Amino acid sequence: MRIAYCVPRLTTSGGIERVLANKSKFLLDHGYEVYFILSEKTDEPPFFDFDKRITFYNLGCEFTARGLKKKMVHGKYKEIYLKRLAAALDEIKPDITISIFDKYSRYLYKVNDGSKKIIERHFGKYKRPRYISKFETNSLGRILTYLYRKADYDIVKHYDKFVVLTEEDKNLWGNLPNIVAIPNSISFIPEIKSTTKDQRIIAVGRASKQKQLDVLIRVWAKIAKKYTDWKLVTYGNGNLESLRKLAEELKIGDQVENNPPTHNIQEEMVNSSIYALSSKYEGFGLVLIEAMACGLPLVSFACKCGPRDIISDGEDGFLIKENDLDDFADKLSLLIADSELRRKMGIAASQNVLRFTEGIVMSKWMSLFDELVN
């Protein structure tokens, strides 16, 4: 069976790219042919190691729309993209073509090449406007939220399947006939787990408004001086200098370490004792299950969507009400002070994460492919 993924690029170190690298290798190992159709022109190699058996197509589109003519230019680029995409699909002749819901590949359904079409969303329904989700509690509110996302609803109805990452998000989209929830998988189960004795709290993500690493530093500042032997260590791209300056301003510069992305995140997690996630929103939270696989207890904001599907509150980690910095600090403090609790929660995390193993999750994808093609 031939599977073609439509993506903008693969050069960044984000969770989407990591998931696609792992997913495509699994499919190749199980007899599938895998193709990637890249829309954006770039000479940079992928950040992650994509299997050499993959065939890549680069459509060479240069999307530079800016200013008042953005809508007009967007329409022109969409036409160029779809024309080049149709030519690539005509050559590949895939059985299934998958859009990752980016700006242009969401229009994949307009290409009538005969392949079954899947659109998968790597973020929750309320990616940025989280306040909109509060209206979901009554019928009028649900109408308003539908209207807010009407453009997305109009897109997904054209696809054979619409795949989201969590049951929480699936429920937010409502009773769509083609929607299915398939989580991300953990691609590694390390033999050596964290001892939870290293005096390090770890966080992974961009220095961005979404990941809120600045908020995490402020949380850490509330208790850092109580635990002077402990450090908060982060890995990710973005404006790391701004994070360092904030730590200095809060007088905890010697207890915060901000690093660029690393290919050895598994080792860094194993050498830590607590994982902290301070995101404003997530699509799933791949780093959470990676940390669990390494035997780390978790402390995370209960943001939409992901942490609620992953963390068993009080068993393998703690779910914190959004924006409650004091409770976040209290739970970090509890884990730091109680080594036995850290150990027990870390063991529970390493066991509970097994429901996200690659074999279990990818069997759901392969069953979906079979359902569509056969």
Rank of each mutant, 00 (worst) to 15 (best):
R9A: 11
T12Q: 15
S13N: 03
G14L: 05
G15M: 01
V19M: 15
A21V: 01
S24P: 06
K25M: 10
H30P: 13
V34L: 03
Y35S: 11
F36H: 01
I37L: 12
L38H: 10
S39N: 08
T42F: 09
E44Q: 06
F48K: 04
F56S: 09
F56T: 10
Y57T: 02
T64V: 13
R66I: 04
K70I: 12
M72S: 12
G75S: 15
K78F: 15
R84A: 04
A88S: 13
E91R: 14
K93W: 10
D95F: 14
L108G: 07
Y109F: 07
V111T: 05
S115H: 11
S115K: 06
K117G: 06
I118V: 08
I118S: 14
F123D: 07
F123C: 08
K127C: 13
R128L: 13
P129M: 06
P129V: 04
E136A: 07
G141V: 00
L147C: 05
R149H: 10
A151F: 01
D154N: 15
K157V: 06
F162R: 07
F162K: 12
V180D: 07
A181N: 03
I182S: 14
I189N: 15
K193Q: 04
S194M: 06
K197W: 14
D198M: 09
R200K: 15
I201R: 11
L213I: 10
V219G: 12
W220F: 09
W220G: 14
W220M: 10
A221T: 00
I223G: 10
K225H: 10
W230A: 15
K231N: 07
V233G: 04
N237C: 00
L240P: 11
A247M: 01
E248D: 11
I252D: 09
V256P: 02
N259K: 14
N264Q: 11
E267S: 10
S273D: 04
S273R: 12
I274H: 14
Y275E: 01
L277K: 06
Y281R: 01
G283I: 03
G285Y: 08
V287M: 08
L288A: 08
I289E: 03
E290S: 03
G295E: 11
L296H: 08
S300C: 02
A302D: 09
C303T: 05
K304C: 06
P307W: 03
I311G: 02
D313H: 13
D313L: 08
G314Y: 01
E315C: 04
D316C: 09
L319R: 00
L319P: 00
K321Q: 12
K321Y: 05
D324F: 09
D326P: 03
A329L: 07
K331G: 01
K331L: 02
L334I: 01
I336S: 09
N352D: 02
N352P: 00
V353H: 08
L354P: 13
F356K: 00
M362P: 10
M366S: 07
